[in-house]
């Protein structure tokens, strides 16, 4: 077996490499956003890009999220592959109109698609308050035509971003800012890391309970599963969705039919969150395989608060996941 050369890569570096590699391989790929050029991006994802790719392909824009997404749509119509950065994913709100009304519907209405990526840092845990911490996936969940990706591992961040750039449809790519520099993995230095959209991944196998989750909650769920295994001897399966739309219902349902128990964990608030949709789909597809009610562990239904005590209260913790898992296993 030929050994593959690897290098320790952070989640953030994996994203940077995906962008660089796609831009090097395909000159139609370009980026636009606020402070991404001269400054190198608020999180330094695009550091050095302006020097390497020049101002035609690394475009500093005014603070105009609607105009950024609009320009990405128009460029996509013309055969370019735009990657638009939202400085924080919270600021996608001013671009909502452009995304849900223009980008998502353009292929359906006119036959001309809008293959573009809108990427940005999401998620709480960094003590950043209500406007730099949100998980916005549910805002867009009810909009056919959009795809949504939320990687947890560096490998997936890289592989899915590359696939998103190549995808023919608008993709919202949610990078969890808490993972940017905390996740480090050995990634191959050569050969393509490419992960297709729409495929969930079994992060940790098990036969007693299924946890479906994504983003930073994958790691909290896995830690909780390890504890349940060590302390109770039960094997919890953790499924990392990776792509939220299209949702990999098949993988979820197959796991639930095996374990008979389902816990859904996400960082976004509960009401109208992805957990509700997954619950409905499992009820439709696997009701008679269930041995317990489906449970959800999510953020509480409030804005993301700022103070450490408040934010920790707001976010689901390992303990919450362990106790919900135990409840389900004992049901």
């Amino acid at each position: 077996m030929a050994s593959v050369e690897t290098r320790e890569t952070t989640y953030l570096t994996a994203i940077r490499e995906a962008l660089q590699e796609e831009m090097r391989a395909d000159e139609t790929v370009f980026m636009l956003g606020e402070d991404i050029g001269v400054y190198g991006g608020a999180f330094k994802v695009t550091e050095g890009f302006l020097e390497e790719f020049g101002p035609d392909r690394v475009i500093d824009t005014p603070i105009s999220e609607a105009a950024i997404v609009g320009a990405a749509i128009g460029a996509a119509h013309m055969g370019l592959k735009p990657v638009a950065e939202m400085q924080f994913i919270d600021f996608i709100a001013p671009a909502f109109d452009m995304i849900v009304n223009f980008a998502a519907k353009s292929r359906y209405r006119t036959g001309i698609g809008a293959g573009l990526v809108i990427r940005g840092p999401c998620g709480a845990g960094a003590r950043s308050g209500p406007f730099h911490s949100q998980s916005v996936e549910s805002y867009f969940a009810n909009v056919p035509g959009l795809k949504m990706v939320a990687p947890a591992r560096a490998y997936d961040a890289k592989g899915l971003l590359r696939a998103s750039i190549r995808d023919p449809d608008p993709v919202l790519f949610f990078e969890h800012k808490f993972l940017y520099r905390r996740i480090k993995e050995e990634l191959p230095t050569e050969g393509e890391v490419l992960v297709p959209l729409g495929e969930a991944r079994t992060h940790r196998p098990g036969n007693d309970l299924t946890i479906v989750t994504y983003g930073a909650m994958v790691f909290k769920s896995a830690d909780a599963a390890d504890r349940v295994a060590a302390e109770d001897g039960s094997e919890v399966e953790v499924i990392d969705l990776r792509t939220l739309r299209p949702l990999d219902t098949k993988t979820i349902v197959e796991s639930v039919r095996r374990t008979g128990r389902l816990l859904i964990v996400h960082e976004a608030p509960r009401f109208g969150g992805f957990a509700g949709e997954i619950t409905a789909q499992v009820c439709e597809e696997a009701f008679e395989w269930l041995d317990a009610p489906i449970r959800r562990v999510t953020a509480i239904d409030t804005p993301v608060p700022y103070a450490p005590t408040l934010e920790d209260y707001y976010l689901p913790g390992e303990e919450d996941i362990v106790s919900a898992a135990r409840w389900l296993l004992a049901y």
Binding site: F30, D56, R57, A75, H77, P82
Partner: peptide
Amino acid sequence: TVPELGILGPISPLGTQLCVLNGVALSFRT
């Protein structure tokens, strides 16, 4: 939207098409 005739269709939310047309113009510039 009819690329062969250089036509970008608007959508109902007013004001949006200029934002998209900017991207078409950007492609010309690039």
